[in-house]
Every structure is written in C-alpha cells, then in structure tokens.
C-alpha cells in the first residue's frame, strides 16, 4: 500500500516537473519538432485506417437498428455525434497509448540502460528537458489533431457505407451529419484529448526515464506504459465527460 502511494507520488511529481520545465528556458524547440513528427505525423496512417474501419462498422450497426424504426435519415447524425463526442477522442487516445506510449517507454528506457542519459547529463545538458518535455508537449498537441483526423475518417467511412446502402449524396450526408452538431459538442471533447496526450507523454516518459533495470527494463517500461496509460485514459474520460456535461449543459444528450 505504501508502495502504491509512493508510486502515485513519484508519477505526480514527475508530471508536474514536466509542466514546470516547459516554461523554464532553455527551450528544446528542435527536439519538439522531431517528436511532433514522430508522434503525430507517423501516427496518421494508423488513425485514418482505424477511423475508417470503425466508421464503416458503426454505420452498418446503426443502420440495421434504425431501419426497424424507419429512421434511416438519422444515420448521419448518429454517426457524427458518436464520433465527435466519444468514439473519436477515446479510440484515438487508446490507439496512441499503444503506439506512442510503448514507443516512448521503450526508447527512454533504452537511453537509460545504455547510459545515453548519463552521457547527456555529463555534457551539462538537462536530460529531462531534452528528452521528456518535448515528448510530453508533442503528445499534448498531437492528440487533438489526430482526434480530428479520426473523426473525419469515421465520417467519410460512414458516408461510403451509407452510400452503398442507400445511394445518399455527399452533400445531403454532410448536411445531416452537421445539422445537430454544435460547437459545444465538438470542441470540448476534442480538446479533452490534450489531457489524454499529457497522460501518455508523462506516464510513458516516467516508466522509460526512471527504469533502473537492464535490458528487461526496456520491455517492462513499454508494457507498463501501455497498461497504465490506457487505464488512466479511460478513468480520466469518465471524469472529463462529467466535467464537460456540467460546463456545457446543452451537450448532455
């Protein structure tokens, strides 16, 4: 039990340090761009493919249900609300926990066990600022952007599936999809993924940066990162959904 409390304390201190160091010079701009490319751009194919598959599947399911009520006209609305409010943010967060969380955990742990972090320190470079802060910031910024890509991929796939079934026009589909979507059920859920990004960046960096075991520590850091990131994303999602519902009552459907 004391171990668990100590662990929570350590992770929290580590995360707060990442925030504090973000505002203290020197700023590692170059490292940040490298990480944004690695974490953001390189994740786009995965996000698009998943969004597409999920979008198509969801339309197939909602269609078979709505058909029995004669409410097929609502399909675009259900699709866009579903994706923008919950599916896009949550699935993007979980996918990134897997791809990016394990990557950061393994890379930093490897730098630690091969003494590269010590080497950075020995050159009077602040290794935390050089390695951790750019990764955390890149995650925070990349997640909302990737979520948007996921949302639109889902929507496009939804259109394709619906077009195959009913021949609906793109124009009509989009009109219906956005008819009942308002800024309040689009912006807050997208921005909440910045929190997911922070969780992924901070937690996986913690496991990687602080590993003290040899080669097996690398694998362990990667696995632990994915497990804890996924768990925290789901838990924080519950909390954030409640917060958004309180702050923007109209969006509570």
């Amino acid at each position: 039990m004391t171990n668990a409390i100590e662990f929570v304390g350590d992770v929290s201190v580590f995360s707060l340090r990442a925030i504090a160091d973000l505002f203290r010079p020197p700023f590692e701009a170059e490292q940040f761009w490298i990480q944004l490319a690695e974490i953001g751009s390189r994740s786009v194919p995965l996000i698009v493919a998943s969004g597409f598959a999920l979008g198509a599947v969801m339309t197939l399911h909602t269609r078979s249900t709505l058909v029995t009520f004669g409410a097929t006209a609502e399909i675009p609305t259900v699709q866009s609300l579903g994706f923008f409010i919950e599916i896009g943010p949550l699935v993007a967060g979980l996918l990134m926990a897997g791809r990016v969380g394990s990557g950061i955990g393994a890379v930093l742990a490897n730098l630690r066990v091969t003494e590269q972090i010590d080497a950075i320190e020995s050159l009077s470079i602040d290794s935390f600022k050089f390695l951790v802060v750019p990764r955390v910031l890149a995650c925070v910024i990349a997640l909302p952007l990737l979520t948007l890509i996921m949302d639109f991929s889902g929507l496009v796939a939804g259109f394709v599936a619906e077009y195959a079934a009913s021949g609906i026009s793109w124009h009509l589909y989009i009109e219906r999809a956005f008819a009942s979507l308002d800024w309040a059920n689009f912006v807050p859920p997208t921005l909440k993924t910045a929190v997911f990004g922070f969780i992924i960046g901070a937690v996986s960096s913690y496991f990687g940066y602080t590993t003290s075991e040899g080669a097996q520590g690398v694998g362990k850091a990667a696995t632990n990162s994915v497990v804890l990131c996924s768990l925290l994303i789901i838990v924080s999602d519950v909390v954030l959904v409640q917060c958004i519902a309180v702050a923007f009552p109209r969006t509570a459907l």
Binding site: T114, E115, D118, A119, E121, S122
Partner: peptide, 16 residues
C-alpha cells in the same frame, strides 16, 4: 564544473 570534464563511458554511450 562538468564543463571542465570529458567522460569516456565504458560502453561509449554514443547517441544512437
């Protein structure tokens, strides 16, 4: 102080 010191690590520790 570290600026005065150069360090060759046992396993070199090059940035890979």
């Amino acid at each position: 102080v570290r600026r005065k010191i150069g360090f060759l690590f046992q396993d070199a520790a090059l940035f890979d």
